[in-house]
Structures are given as structure tokens and as C-alpha cells.
Amino acid sequence: MQTIILTVVTLTALGAILAAALYMVAQRFRTEEDPRIDEVAALLPGANCGGCGFAGCRALAEAVVKSETMDNLYCPVGGSEVMQQVAACVGRTVEAREPMIAVVRCAGACSLRPPTSLYDGAASCRIEAALYKGETDCLYGCSGHGDCERACLFGALRIDAATGLPVVDEEKCTACGACVKACPKRIIELRKKGPKGCRVFVSCVNKDKGNVARKACKAACIACAKCSKACAFGAIAIEENIAYIDFTVCRLCRKCAAECPTGAIRVNGEWRMENGLAPSPLNFNP
């Protein structure tokens, strides 16, 4: 009996002393924190994806509270809606931004881009890109090892087994930009999501001259300039043998896509050359 009492007393005393010590330490090292940081952090999506350029959602919240303006502070995942709420929370206003989405600017499916060598190193786009031009003769195209797929925290990208190209899941993509950074060939671009998810873009980044590009890949942009002539809004510029559609100017009339001889201009994911069809009629992906 005595043993039990002794044990209980000792442990209780020990607990009390240690609790007191802990309390004192906590008091001594307490840091004052702006309560608004917690409020802002609660509004943010909490994915900690780093798409805003900060280490995580809480880091962005801290930056929002500490900063004077809302410039350069934007959560791509939450989008405009969340940023409005955040701005309201800290008593500022922010301009609405259009939602964005990742698009893959390469249409060089396996069948259109014959491989000329066999890569046998670690399955990583970045390692392959550092080593050599890639398995095909197009040194700008997608290498298909899925660095983007691994970088995506939202599971919005996957490499299609048939084409060897990444496919973006419109529902899941939050435009955080992780894939853009992961791609060593800079194929993925964040573009305006567009009304009803309609986007027109040049699905090629090959900077070679037309004949070289065409030889390497049947889906290459050959910089023929038909699209830029067809565009009534001056949205298409051709630089370094590649056409680029400025999505802030483009009105989605899709005349360029009808003109494109190789089908490099795509409307959404639709691309008809894959089936051997002429790239003229246009249709939307629902």
C-alpha cells in the first residue's frame, strides 16, 4: 500500500513541477501574432502547393497581412473569388482575374514523331533533357517521362499511354504552375481558361525552320504565317519560327485553326490530324 501511495505522490509532484516549468517557458517565449493571419489562412485552400510563390498557404497569409498592397499576391488555386475574400478580410480590394489553366503545347504523339534513338537512363524528363535532344528529332518536344505528372499535387495531369503526351484534367487543374516549372522543355503554359473552356493555341514550340520541324514531327508548327494573316485581331505573332497566339488578344474566332496546314493550332484538346482528317471543321470539347 505504501508503495502505491509513494508512487502516486511522486508522479503527481513530478507532473506538477514539469507542468509549471512548461507554462513558464511558454510564457517566456510567447510570440505575438496578428490574428488576421489565421483568418486569411483559413480562407486559403490549404493545399500548400506553392503556386503563389510562397512556401505554403500560411506563408502567403503572412505576406498578405504584412504587405501594404495586394500586388504579386495571388492564389491561383483559390482564384479570383478567394482573393476577393482575402482582400476584404484585410480591408483592401483586388481586381478580378480570369481563371487560368495549364495547356500542353506539344502535339507530337508517338505516331507522328518517329523516335530516332532509345533513351535508357532514369525516367525523368529533366535528366533526359540535360543529356541530349531526346528520343525523336524534335528537340523541343515533350519527352513523356512525366515530370509534370509527378509535380502536380492535384492529380490533374497524366501521361496518355497512347500518345505519350500529358493530358490536363480540366476539372482538377488549379493553374498552380507546378507543372510549368517542372517541364524542362517549357511546353506547358498557363492560359486563360476561356468561356465554356474554349481555348485556341499553337500546340508546338519547335523553333527549327519549317522543313526541319516538319521532318521531325508531322504536327509541328512550320511558321508558314497563314494563321497570322488569317487573324483579324492581330493576336498571332511569329517569332523564331514559331507562331504564338496572345490569349489576351485572341477572340476565339478559330479562323487560324482552319488555316493551319499541320494542325498545330488546336482548339482545346481537339485535334483532327490524329485521325488523318483535314484540320478544317471546328468543334468544341464539351
Binding site: 537512363g121 532514369a122 525523368s124 529533366r126 535528366i127 540535360a130
Partner: peptide, 12 residues
Amino acid sequence: IPLLDYIRMGKG
């Protein structure tokens, strides 16, 4: 394991 491949990438 392709150790050096990844180390090279990491160095970059």
C-alpha cells in the same frame, strides 16, 4: 539505381 542521373539533376 540510376544514382548519378539524379545527382547530376540535383546539382543542376
